[in-house]
């Protein structure tokens, strides 16, 4: 274990670390809003809510923003002037949970593979990830089943773990190493790592939801005519849920859902405008529309099935858009649809 690369900081001294980070970066982290948490800009230590369970929107919003201006155009001349809208600010994301880091790694594969997306890449390149291992699993999470949590092993610049009165700080990259230059921190001891492992073992036992992933993609793929889709879409529901509302919340809060819509807006001169991309959802009727009024997912059943299959890794996104077990979709569904229950039904359990 790389003790030499790890440090600790007392919780009541955390403000010192934050101040250090704020010198170089705009910092975003979890803040409390009512009963829920959301990622927002952090200026002072008291805004930070590191004991959060889950956030409404995942940190996806910083890299693949819900509404993004791609470029501006000016129609005054025949040769339209197009100017890319760039964002080059250095930012730091503090307190991002393991499932969300894993989701980002999948989005990396997706947006930085074939046809790189410069907007995503720019934001990703300019953002430092200071991850935070989970303290308590959310009632809805099943990251443990998906191999994406509750503790993190990859994808971070720095990793924090709550080990009682202090945080253990592990370094995951050169960037992480450099960030800690110029701040006085305690070196981590073997006892600190023992405490970390101890907490991990306790945490694992506290999960309330599970999913058996063995052959699950294959099972889902072979069950596209299963009666569960009809129950989800039209009547009956699954394991106590009501049928789907097609409200689209599940896909918007999903950390790996990336589908977007693109449109142009003009200002009132009708000569200047912008091309915008906005998060879209396969749960909406409009999503499947084609020319001349056609639609290839006209029924709710088709749409909820598509989303579930996508999360189980059998849609076009493959593993890149599949579930990381954060549980946000279950938490936010007004009718109580639960992907872990759907998986059970598909398995015939």
């Amino acid at each position: 274990m790389g003790n030499e690369k790890a440090f600790t900081i007392e919780k009541n001294d955390f403000g010192r670390l934050l101040e250090h980070l704020l010198k170089k970066y705009r910092v975003f982290g979890p803040t409390q809003r009512g009963l829920d948490a959301t990622f927002n800009e952090i200026k002072t230590n008291d805004q930070l809510f590191l004991d959060y369970v889950s956030t409404v929107l995942p940190p996806k919003k910083f890299f693949h923003p819900p509404r993004l201006e791609l470029f501006s155009f000016d129609l005054h001349q025949k040769h339209v002037k197009i100017e890319e809208i760039k964002q080059d600010e250095k930012t730091l994301l503090l307190g991002i949970h393991p499932c969300d880091v894993h989701a980002l790694l999948r989005l990396d594969d997706f947006f930085l593979g074939e046809f790189q997306d410069p907007y995503y890449q720019n934001r990703r390149k300019n953002t430092v990830l200071v991850a935070l291992n989970c303290i308590e699993p959310s009632d809805y999470a099943f990251c443990n089943s998906m191999g994406t949590g509750p503790f993190l092993e990859e994808g971070y610049d720095l990793l924090l773990t709550d080990i009682g009165t202090k945080y253990l700080i592990e370094i995951g990259s050169d960037t992480g190493q450099n960030i800690l230059k110029g701040i006085q921190l305690e070196n981590a001891t073997t006892a600190d790592f023992t405490e970390k492992n101890h907490r991990f073992k306790l945490l694992e036992k506290r999960f309330k939801r599970f999913i058996n992933t063995s052959w699950l993609s294959k099972i889902a793929q072979e069950n596209i005519d299963h009666e569960v889709w009809e129950r989800l879409g039209e009547q009956g529901g699954v394991s106590g849920s009501l049928p789907c509302l097609s409200c689209g919340q599940c896909s918007l809060v999903c950390p790996t859902c990336y589908c977007y819509d693109v449109y142009d807006t003009l200002d009132l001169s009708l000569k200047k405008g912008k091309r915008i991309r906005e998060l879209d959802s396969c749960q909406l009727l409009e999503y499947g529309e084609v020319a001349q009024g056609g639609n290839f997912r006209p029924n709710r059943k088709d749409r909820i099935r598509h989303w579930m299959l996508c999360k189980l890794g059998v849609a076009a996104g493959g593993q890149q858009s599949s579930c990381v077990g954060c549980g946000r979709c279950i938490r936010t569904c007004p009718v109580g649809i639960d992907i872990t229950e759907v998986a059970k039904v598909l398995r015939g359990e």
């Binding site: 074939e114 693109v262 084609v290 290839f296 598509h306 996104g317």
Partner: peptide, 25 residues
């Protein structure tokens, strides 16, 4: 095949057909 496409490069998701993107595959 024909689908409505918003990006043409397998990112916007609209042209998904089972495990394929109509625009890219």
């Amino acid at each position: 095949l024909e689908r409505r496409m918003k990006c043409g490069i397998g990112k916007c998701g609209h042209c998904q057909l089972g495990p394929k993107y109509v625009c890219k595959d």
